[in-house]
Design a protein around this nucleic acid. Structure first.
Length: 479
RNA sequence: UCCCCGAUAGCUCAGUCGGUAGAGCAAGUGGCUGUUAACCACUGGGUCACAGGUUCGAGUCCUGUUCGGGGAGCCA
């Protein structure tokens, strides 16, 4: 029973056979194999066989299991199998008699591992479901084609990211989840505390005594690992962080989560130009990896979710990214014969409608906007010589908007100190950050990439709540 | 947080002028079939989100609440 396969995978013992590895070697037929998985559908034929579509999640495809009515549990069990039941099947891997698949299993045993206790109540019935509905059953939705495909693509993209940076000589840096500073100087943070909420320690003025808290000071969940990454970039030259990030903003959109994954590379001795070049190379590497590694899942999205999915990724792979300064973008927007809800003038923060026009109508591809007015950007971005702009960049993807935001960092102590004072930041809290400019400062640059937004761009799935396994958003923390 | 839209069978939706509830899919049963988005027939399945109000009478009109979706802002 425990010997799953002999000659098909010679040299391995008791290694469980996945559908993915089976189909990779599908040319080898007439072997005895075993598979474990879940029933997607069952069809019965009066010719004396039942057909089971079996999936195990290792790839998009199902395997057709042909079950003859001569099996001892055919009447008692096989005919009662419904969508979602887990089974272990053994039999011969043979060329298929029917159309629709090249190979199939002629089963000689079917062992039921787990029944679906009430098929009528099972949330994942064999029909099309809306993503909104599937969000209500987060623990069961990975069993669907679409969420399963998202999960595999998510892995493939994450792996491609690590692979890319490793090849480029970057080191993966694990920055802290619990932080003491608000990296952006804006945005709501989740407080981390062990204080008794029902009995808070206060001083004579009624102020909270944070010195009694676990860390002896105020702490939060990280909104960005960038500042910490800069410390390591100024020692290891090239690092990147990749992990969860938290924002307590009350954002109710298809592009925001309270907990999401962000990739943040940071390079010493680098300019904004090199930063942008890195972003382009990274995106191309991820797209080409996913297209080849997960062609099956991408084909599904291309057919059912977004017909331009493959074309879009290939277009990015084969085209130069357009780089445009903020000033050029503003002049394009002011010249275009189109009514915007928010009028455009130099110095404004570009609205979604403006970014959309630029990326979707004007260049019809990912667009890199650089050199934004310093007044609308963060304190750590390097001031350009014009005195008006900073060396910032946004990579705008058609249909999604900002997918990457980055900058060259201000490496000059005096300029940075002044910018922080203007922003009203407490220099004491950021003393360590200023130290980085005090001791062997160098030009450096980096960016942040929203991982779920990237996956949205790849798959065409519009709401990033469907691209993270268990989404957290305002009022939403199921499972 | 703001604006707009919505909530009716397990799911997706229809429901006319205010007059006591419908379809498709799914499920169950039977028929047919090397089937594969199967097909045919039958059956079961409803506190019309919740709470109030108007009315002889509310799924339908009004108010509030909750939840969901789209857009905006914040951003990744």
């Amino acid at each position: 029973m425990s010997v799953i396969i002999s000659s098909l995978r010679a040299g391995t013992t008791k290694h469980r056979l996945s559908i993915a590895s089976l189909l990779k070697q599908a040319h080898q037929s007439d072997q005895r194999i075993s598979l474990e998985g879940w029933v997607r559908t069952r069809r019965d034929s009066k010719a004396g066989v039942s057909f089971i579509a079996l999936y195990d999640g290792s790839c998009f495809a199902t395997v057709q299991i042909v079950v003859p009515d001569s099996l001892i549990n055919y009447q008692t069990e096989v005919l009662k199998l419904s969508t979602g039941c887990s089974i272990k099947v053994s039999g011969l891997w043979v060329s298929s008699l029917g159309e629709g698949q090249n190979f199939e299993m002629q089963a000689d045993t079917v062992e039921v591992l787990g029944w679906v206790e009430d098929p009528d109540q099972y949330a994942i019935s064999p029909k099309r479901h809306t993503l909104e509905y599937l969000r209500e059953v987060q623990h069961l939705r990975p069993r669907t084609n679409i969420i399963g495909a998202v999960a595999r693509i998510r892995h493939s993209a994450a792996h491609a990211i690590h692979e890319f940076f490793h090849q480029q000589g970057f080191f993966w840096l694990n920055t802290p989840i619990i932080t003491t500073n608000d990296c952006e100087g804006a945005g709501e943070l989740f407080r981390v505390s062990t204080l008794d909420l029902l009995n808070l320690p206060k001083d004579d003025q009624g102020q909270l005594r944070f010195e009694e808290d676990f860390f002896g000071r105020e702490t939060f969940l990280t909104v960005s690992g960038q500042l910490n990454a800069e410390a390591y970039a100024l020692a290891l030259s090239k690092v990147y962080t990749f992990g969860p990030t938290f924002r307590a903003e009350n954002s109710n959109t298809s592009r925001h989560l309270a907990e999401f994954w962000m990739l943040e590379p940071e390079m010493a001795f680098a300019s904004l130009t090199e930063d942008a070049e890195l972003a382009v190379k990274l995106l191309k590497h991820i797209f080409s990896t996913v297209l080849s590694e997960r062609a099956d899942d991408i084909a599904f999205f291309n057919q059912w979710v977004d017909k331009t999915c493959i074309q879009r990724l290939e277009h990015v792979l084969n085209s130069e990214f357009i780089t445009m300064t903020y000033t050029e973008a503003v002049s394009i927007l002011m010249k275009v014969n189109k009514k915007f809800e928010y009028p455009v003038s130099w110095g404004i923060d570009l609205q979604s409608e403006h970014e959309r026009y630029l990326a979707e109508d004007h260049v019809k591809a990912p667009l890199i906007l650089i050199d934004y007015p310093k007044d609308i950007k963060a304190f750590y971005m390097r001031c350009n010589d014009d005195g008006k702009t900073v060396a910032a960049m946004d990579v705008l993807a058609p249909g999604i908007g900002e997918i990457i935001g980055g900058s060259q960092r201000e490496e000059r102590l005096e300029v940075l100190t002044q910018r922080m004072q203007e922003a009203g930041l407490d220099l004491e809290t950021y003393a360590w950050y200023l130290d980085l400019r005090r001791y062997g400062s160098v030009p450096h640059a980096g960016f942040g990439l929203g991982f779920e937004r990237l996956l949205s761009y790849i798959t065409g799935v519009a709401n990033i709540r469907d691209l993270i396994p268990f989404p957290r958003a305002p009022g939403q923390a199921k499972c």
